[in-house]
């Protein structure tokens, strides 16, 4: 096996070990459940109650919103929590690169988000008239969306903070505004012009669009553009996460 293949194999193994550790430790932590599961439920209820909207029409938005909150909830919890418990030092002094550690955090966000997004899909399919017309695009939207959202979460966890709640606060400051400009509650085409200008900078816009197509609804962006943009967001956010985490690590923070 070439040296490069060995390196990648070692990095992948390290990332999976980290992802497994995160799953065992953090999936059931209260902040993850509150910000990842309860938040989208309450947003859904606030949006739906008293409004004459067909329930099947809001299923894709519900799935995208659940994915947004769940996949991006792991990163902002893991690093600050581990920095405070000083277990972070154990990880970075092990023979696993920082890149692999962060990839593990992304994978754990991806798995958490993808698994929990099944709940609104099942509820939507059983309780409403919603139907999946393109499973491939639905799965593609969920996987690529979860990857980019999890990478965003890991990036947001980079600044050193004395308490994990400070990072959760920061992550909500970023996640909440994006929620309102990404066509979740109102299709992008019906949003005011300024919001239509802003929506392309949100990965949630593209993931929501793909999920909408998966449920047989009309897309705002071309499918190829959504796929490309989600891949680009994942790469850019992960690159930024590696860079900022490395910067703080070098300072011993």
């Amino acid at each position: 096996m070439s040296e490069m293949a060995q390196t990648w194999r070692r990095e992948a193994r390290g990332a999976l070990v980290i992802a497994r550790k995160n799953a065992l430790l953090y999936y059931l932590k209260p902040p993850v459940l509150i910000f990842g599961v309860l938040f989208p439920v309450f947003f859904f209820l606030a949006f739906k109650m008293g409004r004459p909207i067909a329930a099947e029409n809001i299923v894709p938005g519900m799935v995208a919103m659940a994915l947004w909150f769940t996949a991006s909830a792991i990163g902002p919890l893991v690093t600050p929590w581990e920095r405070r418990a000083r277990t972070y030092e154990r990880l970075i002094s092990s023979p696993v690169s920082l890149r692999a550690i962060l990839a593990g955090d992304v994978v754990s966000g991806l798995v958490f988000g993808a698994c929990l997004s099944v709940i609104p899909i099942v509820l939507g399919l059983t309780l409403t008239d919603a139907q999946v017309t393109s499973a491939l695009l639905l799965v593609g939207g969920i996987v690529l969306g979860a990857l980019s959202f999890a990478s965003l979460g890991v990036l947001l966890a980079a600044p050193p903070a004395s308490s994990p709640s400070n990072i959760m606060l920061l992550s909500n400051l970023v996640r909440l505004p994006f929620l309102f400009v990404s066509g979740i509650f109102l299709p992008i085409a019906q949003m005011p012009p300024w919001a239509r200008w802003v929506s392309p900078i949100s990965p949630l816009s593209y993931a929501g669009d793909l999920i909408r197509v998966g449920f047989g609804q009309r897309a705002y962006f071309p499918v190829w553009l959504s796929l490309l943009m989600l891949a680009a967001f994942t790469a850019a956010l992960f690159w930024g996460a590696c860079r900022f985490h490395a910067r703080w690590r070098a300072k011993g923070l």
């Binding site: 550790k21 065992l24 430790l25 418990a85 000083r86 277990t87 030092e89 154990r90 002094s93």
Partner: peptide
């Protein structure tokens, strides 16, 4: 390397 830091930073919930 094997490392034993001053503060036993084990994963408490594992």
């Amino acid at each position: 390397l094997g490392i034993v830091p001053e503060q036993a930073n084990v994963y408490l919930d594992l």
